[in-house]
Amino acid sequence: MTFLPAHPSDRLATGVLLFSASLWGLSWMPLKGFIAQGLSGPLVALITYGSVGLLAVALLWRDRAAWRAQWGLVLALTLVGGWANTSFVNALMLGDVVRVMFLFYLSPVWSVLGGWLFLKERIPPTRWLAVVAAIVGLWMVLGGPGLGDSTALAFTWVDALSLSAGFAFAANNVIARAAHRVPLRTKTFCVFIGCGLLSALATGLGGSGLPAILSAMGPLVWLALLAYGFGWMLLATVTWQYGVSHLESSRAGLILLAELLISVGTAIAFGGESLTPLGWAGGALIATAAGVEALGGGAVPKPPPLEPQTPPHDTT
């Protein structure tokens, strides 16, 4: 980011990270607009992430000497990070934003478990309590005591997408920490490439309906999609990288909780969404668990590109 100083003040780094969190928190708005135009989630992800991913291939090839020794981890980052973003985009487009965000923010649970199982990290009791709180919060968001009743909001495949997105995001964080020899830029753009590849499979490029959909898309729709990919998503990812790279991980994690607050608040204020009192209580537990995990040194939660408490929003 040549337009920002290499050694910023804490105030500037905080401002940049809040800007990134705001972009991620508001990303549901253009996505809902795209589905209103009759576009599917995989197609949107293919055009927005895939177009950036095509250009990123050249950057990855140029960095190949640096990541060749850990090429297996680069492949894992591409697939896992790609799934995190693809499933997140589809969940936001098809589901209730509030519910999707709370389920996605269970990623601290998976970060703790992944770090414990695969990286042999020592987990303090407070972080285990956060895991328990997040699981209880999930139960409450999904219906609590009424879960399973015919009157309760049933668990849907969109819920499964939301949970899998959070799981994949946390897994991406764990893989990125293990891939210590892989350049940060490579970790970041792997996500765009993976999202484009998985979205291409999901759209079924050989299907008979896709050419008709693409030909029916007007120039303004194409322009909006490309602007969302190269403008909104790329800017959100790069500013995420910059912010978390120049702040303490615990501080960055707490700042990035603004994404959850912004997305939930705007979805209720402008999207006509709501949540039951029990759901609010569960969401509060999940948000608290995410805050405890951030303070405890875990991976930073989010939508949407990723890196842990240190580097990218979409690559770990």
Rank of each mutant, 00 (worst) to 15 (best):
M1R: 01
F3N: 01
P5G: 05
H7T: 13
A13S: 09
F19N: 04
L23Y: 05
G25Q: 00
L31I: 11
I35F: 07
L43K: 13
L43R: 13
Y49H: 15
G53H: 03
L55N: 06
L59A: 09
R62A: 08
D63M: 05
R64V: 07
Q70I: 04
W71I: 13
V74E: 02
L75R: 06
T78W: 00
D96M: 11
D96F: 08
M101F: 11
M101E: 09
F102H: 09
Y105M: 11
V109C: 07
S111V: 13
F118H: 10
F118Q: 06
R127L: 13
W128M: 02
L129V: 03
L129I: 02
A130V: 03
V132S: 00
A134E: 05
L138F: 07
V141Y: 04
L142T: 12
P145H: 08
G148D: 11
T151N: 13
A152G: 06
T156D: 08
W157D: 04
L163N: 09
A165W: 02
H180S: 15
V182I: 00
R185C: 00
F189C: 01
F189E: 02
V191H: 03
F192L: 13
G196I: 10
L197P: 04
T203I: 15
G207H: 10
S208M: 12
L210E: 11
M217P: 01
L220V: 08
L220K: 06
W222F: 01
W222L: 00
L225W: 05
Y228A: 14
G229T: 12
L234M: 10
A236D: 01
A236C: 04
Q241P: 01
G243C: 05
S245N: 11
H246Q: 08
L247E: 08
E248M: 12
L257R: 04
A258C: 13
E259K: 03
I262S: 08
S263D: 02
I268A: 13
G272M: 02
S274A: 14
P277F: 01
A284G: 15
A289T: 04
A290R: 10
G296W: 07
G297M: 09
A299C: 13
P303Q: 08
P304V: 02
L306V: 10
E307I: 12
E307W: 06
Q309T: 14
D314I: 03
T316M: 11
